[in-house]
Write a protein that binds this DNA or RNA. Sequence first.
DNA 1: CACAGATATTTCAAACTCAAAATATTTATG
DNA 2: CATAAATATTTTGAGTTTGAAATATCTGTG
Lengths: 165, 165
Amino acid sequence: MNMNHSDDLRDLMNNETSDLSKARLRAWLQILKVSRKIEGELREKMRIEFGSTLPRFDVLAALYRERDGMRMSELSKSLMVSNGNVTGIVDRLVGEGMLVRVPVENDRRASIVRLTEAGEKDFAERALVHEGWVSELFSDLSASDADGLIRILRTISHHNEAPHD
Amino acid sequence: MNMNHSDDLRDLMNNETSDLSKARLRAWLQILKVSRKIEGELREKMRIEFGSTLPRFDVLAALYRERDGMRMSELSKSLMVSNGNVTGIVDRLVGEGMLVRVPVENDRRASIVRLTEAGEKDFAERALVHEGWVSELFSDLSASDADGLIRILRTISHHNEAPHD
DNA sequence: CACAGATATTTCAAACTCAAAATATTTATG
DNA sequence: CATAAATATTTTGAGTTTGAAATATCTGTG
């Protein structure tokens, strides 16, 4: 049973916070805890097994889904990180020979970033290993709990979706 | 229904990954997505409303729960970040007058970090505002979904708990 | 007591991250 | 066409983060 708008308003006016508000805070703290723990584990595995980092993996993953490449701005929006952030990571991946920057016809401001053949091959292998790590870290998560988790998280995502153009 | 050990083993040997493994990966990516979006929102609010940052809030929150103060190592373990990281953040918070370092009797290696009176007062106010922000960001999350979310995330946490001493 | 190993913390270099400013280019408007 | 506004990206400065090395101190064993 969801709260309606006037309930929310009453909550905001109220000095002491409601039980629901506290439950939501606990939920957020638990999300944060799991997220940090799993990220820490994955970071260490990437460092040891791949000699690489999580942010680089994320960039490669995004470009593996979009084989024709993406613009810097698309990349940063898709990863939900700042524009300037992506610049540095892409620079390093270009240096490692995983990515190339391709100029865009008719728009000399922009460039498309895409995987090199080597980058594509490397990532394909890494993605399988990565999925195995995640499945192992989540091995107590049943199929139905995975679905439940995804459903609940989506309701949160959608509420906080970026406003339409 | 959970997988047993030999199912996991078969999965590892198997080149193609299972549906369950893919569901777990999707769950992880959704956790990551929500976690990033909410962190971004909170970061911005903290910057604008408090002129402060998320990591500083986290340190203050931990010390607000432990009024007698914590050692640097306890702090970094509790926040799941590296030791060296906490040093820098505590340095800044000491500079802002929110924290003090107190020497530990009988152990000159260690020091206890605790809130100053001003730090305690400031944080108490901020914590209420923060809880309101979270509740607003999670306003589509019902009480039962909050509980469900917490339950599922705890099973993941527990599996990945640090091994006992 | 000597001193090897353990423990607590800081320092360090490299990478990541953000927000804002700067740069370059394109588009729209008069 | 001139040029203001919009767009795409990079640069910059400050802060955060990590993992490893350095420093200081403590503890247990002989």
